[in-house]
Design a protein around this nucleic acid. Sequence first.
DNA 1: GCGACAGACTTACAGCGTACATTGCAACGT
DNA 2: ACGTTGCAATGTACGCTGTAAGTCTGTCGC
Lengths: 217, 217
Amino acid sequence: MPSSRRAPLSRDRILRAAIKLADRHGLDALSMRKLATTLKVEAMSLYNHVANKDELLDGMVDIVIGEITRPTCGGDWKAALRARAASALSVMMAHPWAPMLVVSRIVVGPNMLAYIDATLATLREAGFSWHDTDRAWNTMDNYIYGFALQQQNFPVDPEEYASAAAAYLPMLPASVYPYMHEMSKHVAEGTLDGTHDFAFGLELILDGLERLRHART
Amino acid sequence: MPSSRRAPLSRDRILRAAIKLADRHGLDALSMRKLATTLKVEAMSLYNHVANKDELLDGMVDIVIGEITRPTCGGDWKAALRARAASALSVMMAHPWAPMLVVSRIVVGPNMLAYIDATLATLREAGFSWHDTDRAWNTMDNYIYGFALQQQNFPVDPEEYASAAAAYLPMLPASVYPYMHEMSKHVAEGTLDGTHDFAFGLELILDGLERLRHART
DNA sequence: GCGACAGACTTACAGCGTACATTGCAACGT
DNA sequence: ACGTTGCAATGTACGCTGTAAGTCTGTCGC
C-alpha cells in the first residue's frame, strides 16, 4: 500500500512544482523538461495530467490567485478593498512571474472566479450600481497588476536608488531631458526617494470611488 | 549608383519590418527567421544590425512610444494629460503586442525618455512637487498600460458581449458565484454593457490629482 | 491467473535564438 | 589597374523548446 516506487504524479503536484520552479528560477526557466526532472519524471508524463503548457500556466495562476485573502463584505468597504489590494500585491511580489501571466491571459479557474465574486460583492454591498461596480473593479485591478509589473521589472534595489540615479545622470543631459535630469539629481542627492508608492494611487482611486458613491445617493 | 541588388539592410528597416510583422501576425510569429524572410535575407544577417532579439524588441517599443503625441505644458494640465492618455491608448491598440513589451522590460530609448520628460514637465509646470509628480506619473501609466493589456486580452468583441455573457452563464451558478452570475445576467439581458470604460478610471485619477494639487497650495 | 487500462516512457520533429566560421563585394591607397 | 582591407550577408551547427505518436509496464477488478 505504501509501495509504488513509481512517482505518484498528479495535476496538483505538477502545478505546485511548477510554481516553486518559477518562483526560484523565473518563468523562462520553466520548461516542460526542467519541470519534469524536478519531479523525477520524463517530460511527456506531464501531459497525462495537463493538456499543454498553457493549461499548466493557467493552473499556476489560479492557485496563486487562491492565495489572495478575499474581501468580506458587510463592514467598511474601503478598508476591505484596501486589504484586498494589499494582499493581492503581496502575493504578486511573492510570485514575481504571476502578474505577467495574469494580465496576458484570461484565467477562469475556481479561485479566480471566487476572487472576483467576492470583490463584486464588496462593491455591491457598499451600494455601488452594477455599472459602477464593474468599472471600479477594473480600475482597481488595472492599477494593482500594473503596479506589480512595474515593481517587478524595476532593475535596482531600493537601497541603491540614489547611487543608481547618480550613475544614470550622465545619460540624461539637462539640455535634452531637463526634467528627467533634475528628477534624477534629486534622487541621487537623496532629496527625493525613488520609491514606488502603492498606497498613493490606490487611495486616489478609493477616494474617487467614495465621492462617486456619495454623489449617487 | 542605384545598383546594389544586395538588400540594403539597416537597423531602422529591420525594426519597422518587425513592427509590421508583429502588428499583422502577433508577437509569437515574430521570430528572427520569419523576420529575415520578410526582408529577403537570412536570419543571421539581422545580427549585423541588432545585438540580439531583446534589443530588437526594445527598439520596436521605442519606435512605437515615439508615435504617442507628447503633452505640451503651459496650458491646462488636466487636458494635456487626458490627451496624452488617449494618444497612448490608441497607439497601444494599434500595436496590440506593445503594452506587454512595455511593462515587461525597461526601455530607455530616446523616444521613451522624451515621452517621460514631457510628462514630468506637464506635471511640474502644473505645480506638483517632485514627489507628487513621480507618483502621479506612475499611477497614470500603470492605469494606461493595465487597461490596454486588459482590453487586448479580452476574448470577445463588444457587439458580442450579450451573447457571450449568456453563453457563459451556465458556468457561473448563482449558488457558487452569486454576484458574477447576476452581473452576467445583466450583461446578457442588455441591462449592463460590458464595455470597458477607459475614461472612468482616468478621470478618477485626474480628479484625485487635482484635489491633491489644491490641498497643497 | 488474466485482461484491461491508466500512466510513465521513448522517440521524433519542427521550430527557436544565436555562436562561429566563411564568403562576396565595394571602396581605398598606391 | 591592383592588391588590401573591412563590413555585411551567409552557411552551418548546437542546444533548447513544446508536443504528436507509439510503446511499455505496473496495478487492479474479475
